[in-house]
């Protein structure tokens, strides 16, 4: 399903959010974000209230894309981990399940070693969740899709006009 549209159902979000919450707790981090490689937020956990998540998602995806470009230039498949060290806060950015980016925001209460250690299990869980999501999307099952087809897909050009009225 790599490169295909991503469809997130309620149960997927719950499952991914649970993985992120556990990682956030175990890694003693401030917040954890799971982002699609194209820059869309998938799920988040922790102290996210004061973070501009949309911008964070887009810039992180840009960073990963840029370092991917660098990797190719040097004949590497990809640089799967980025680490940004600040005065107070640090960012650990890694590619998981090939198509997603896991961002861990942490301060002095944690350490790079702890984050890397706890991340392994979370990455495996996320990979598993994505594999199952891909399978389900292929089978086209699920209430959400039905609702989407019954409602959203019935839109007309007028609905789009309304969107731009204000």
């Amino acid at each position: 399903m790599l490169g295909a549209d991503l469809t997130l159902f309620e149960e997927d979000e719950r499952r991914l959010a649970a993985v992120l919450r556990r990682l956030c707790e175990e890694a003693k981090s401030r917040a954890v974000f799971l982002i699609d490689k194209s820059g869309q937020l998938i799920a988040a956990a922790g102290e996210t209230a004061n973070v501009d998540i949309t911008s964070l998602a887009s810039l992180t995806a840009g960073s990963i894309a840029a370092s991917g470009g660098l990797a190719q230039l040097l004949g590497e498949k990809e640089f799967s981990v980025l680490f940004h060290e600040g005065e107070k806060d640090n960012l650990h950015i890694s590619v998981v399940a090939q198509r997603a980016i896991l961002v861990v925001l942490f301060d002095r209460r944690s350490s790079l070693g702890l984050v890397r250690l706890r991340l392994k299990r979370a990455a495996e869980d996320i990979g598993q969740a994505f594999a199952e999501m891909a399978l389900r999307t292929q089978q086209e099952a699920g209430r959400g899709r039905a609702a989407f087809q019954a409602q959203f897909a019935q839109f007309t050009d007028e609905d789009i006009e309304d969107l731009f009225k204000s």
Partner: peptide, 15 residues
């Protein structure tokens, strides 16, 4: 690569 989130009833598109 559009992103449809059924849980939050959101559609995200990149232009």
């Amino acid at each position: 690569m559009s992103f449809i989130n059924y849980a939050a009833r959101e559609i995200n598109c990149k232009l």
